[in-house]
Design a protein around this nucleic acid. Sequence first.
DNA 1: CCTTTAGTACGACAGGCTTCGTAGTACGGC
DNA 2: GCCGTACTACGAAGCCTGTCGTACTAAAGG
Lengths: 117, 117
Amino acid sequence: METMSPRALPHPATDEITLAAVLHALSDPVRLRIATMLADGHGDMACIAFDLPVTKSTTTHHFRVLREAGVIAQHYQGTSKMSTLRREDLEALFPGVLTSVLNAARGAQTGEAAHPA
Amino acid sequence: METMSPRALPHPATDEITLAAVLHALSDPVRLRIATMLADGHGDMACIAFDLPVTKSTTTHHFRVLREAGVIAQHYQGTSKMSTLRREDLEALFPGVLTSVLNAARGAQTGEAAHPA
DNA sequence: CCTTTAGTACGACAGGCTTCGTAGTACGGC
DNA sequence: GCCGTACTACGAAGCCTGTCGTACTAAAGG
């Protein structure tokens, strides 16, 4: 039996995720950064540990937008909340989208173009 | 010499295109539809011919957002304005992003998930 | 039980977005 | 030269977003 935390977190079902919502969620610099960090193996990191240029309230807001768009999954672990990318779901729905976006974001933080030399 | 139309259209240079702006441009249902139609070979079509569920003014607005984000290139041809996707530029900057997004949009117009039977 | 830590809820505020209508400009055809 | 077509500019309305601060709740640890 799971401990069944009283703090439930609503996630959209796989077939409720829309492309427009995912793209919108990823079109914000802060959220793009969160997604990139999650992809880079920071999956077991509390929300507060992301060192974002916004306050705690705003951080909560952005994590929620990502979750409600279906980009990330979240679950509580003590007082902390852990987030993971919904890679499989998104890959099944929109093949290649998440991967290529994260790749692009990594090479060009938040928007800078890739100027090779 | 080109006829040098007095109606110039400002386009961002390749290295001015940002990922966030591109994602934002594509996160609107109307614009996603425009991009999909352009990808499907309607490159030589006037803006007005796109049969969008908005007025002419709004259509102009959306085409401009796409152009200013670097997603499309536009040029006048008589009284009409032709648009084409900046596939090469985007592929060079953000490999796979445009292609996978368009693919996803085609299979799931504007956001619906792909329910195979 | 009390304190600390992590995150939430709520309200507020500024700014942006999408939409529209109307008026105006550029081009092509008669 | 005149008219129609395609697009633009401008302003307005309504909504949504990102940001914050403050007050609150849930869990962990002594």
